[in-house]
Design a protein around this nucleic acid. Structure first.
Lengths: 220, 220
DNA sequence: TGGCGCTAGATTGTATCCAACGCGGGTTCG
DNA sequence: CGAACCCGCGTTGGATACAATCTAGCGCCA
């Protein structure tokens, strides 16, 4: 999965990238209004590239545009979030299958490091970062374009709720998450596609069920 | 699945919608360059809303933008098309599962009409239109937002290649397609989710394998 | 007192104008 | 004769200026 580097120096894409990152970092929680002029001033540009950036982010599902009215950071209901997780359950094993046989030894080593490092973390923000790196790295062997982009979009739209969930979690109580990560690494090392896909499926599914047990995360 | 009607009168979205339709109708085959000024003149607008429309269509995967250079109607390789079909195999049964129990009698009747009507058609263009209506209607009972949009995007990006494939097909030789459609309708009528999902999976998978037997469709 | 309509301000949508970038043809030099 | 460079044109990218639309707050009236 090719990580789309800031493809070119065009302002609208730079702005879209920076805005995306700041939303993913949680600097603008769902429901926050984003004004064109504010963003334009922040980046020293006119409102024109900002509008194009908004279109890009709308397509990413990160913001919601209403004509003649404005832009807001997208909000998910619990039902929508479950929908996305069910999508992920079915898609990500496929992507992993494309990736598994092309992972290098260095990447496998890094995956194992990440799985170990995550166990010791107490800061939810750090966990979120490493967990994202872990899973996206496990897809790095896939050369697919559409599939990879789709998965990354699903990760992005749910990032805020993953953060909220991680926050209220006991850092020591989610041992099963780490077990699953280690099982995944083991299967990847063996090149055991079937096992890797099944572990990943269960990992995502379990998270979906956990999320559903905390509906208040989705209250406005 | 809610069909997104032209949400509002904003020029950029009207233009995007009209351009999308004309691409889906095959008026601009993959690889065709699309100039901002031409489109602006066609719609009696300035280039500004056209640029926003391009961003929308780029996110749809219908056109490909290159900074400072231009926009082209997106082209798919065989590998990418297979990727999309594998995605569809996994996603559309899920969407169908959301839909099946909410389909009305009228919708089921219409589905049966479509399945019958398609058998008699000799014009590939007509077949394409009805086949699309058939499948999207079978998802009409689903209230999901993200899932429905994702599926529609996958249909849109592959539309041209479905057309090309349909064209070189003997109208009488694809009897199995119609059998599958009828089996699907029967399962939907019974509310047999498992059977409906399996038939749909096989339908999409078989089409993928057929496409793979015609690699020349994807030559530039 | 509560609901409705109106107006002023803010915010978004569009058009016109200028700058920057890429591509292609022609020329020149090895 | 071929290849590299350079310049000019066409196309896209961006900024400013103006029009259209929405929201919020106020006053009026039942």
């Amino acid at each position: 999965m090719r990580v789309s580097t800031s493809r070119n120096g065009v302002a609208s894409e730079r702005i879209a990238g920076a805005l995306r990152d700041s939303i993913l970092r949680g600097e603008h929680p769902p429901g926050t209004r984003i004004r064109q002029e504010d963003v334009a001033a922040e980046f020293g540009a006119s409102r024109l590239p900002v509008r194009e950036a908004f279109r890009i982010l709308e397509a990413d599902g990160l913001i919601t545009l209403v004509a003649n009215t404005g832009a807001w950071v997208s909000r998910l209901s619990l039902a929508e979030c479950e929908e996305i997780y069910q999508l992920r359950e079915r898609i990500e094993p496929l992507l992993l299958g494309y990736s598994i046989l092309n992972l290098t030894d260095d990447q496998l080593t890094r995956l194992e490091e990440l799985a170990i490092a995550m166990q010791a973390l107490r800061d939810p923000e750090e966990f979120l970062r490493l967990d994202r790196e872990f899973h996206l790295l496990s897809y790095a062997g896939a050369t697919t374009a559409i599939l990879g982009d789709t998965v990354r979009r699903l990760w992005n739209t749910t990032q805020h709720y993953r953060r909220a969930y991680t926050r209220l979690l006991d850092p020591d109580g989610n041992r099963i998450v780490h077990d699953e990560h280690h099982m995944l690494v083991a299967a990847l090392r063996l090149g055991d596609t079937e096992d890797a896909e099944r572990v990943l499926y269960g990992h995502i599914r379990r998270t979906r069920l956990e999320l559903a047990r905390h509906p208040t995360l989705f209250d406005p």
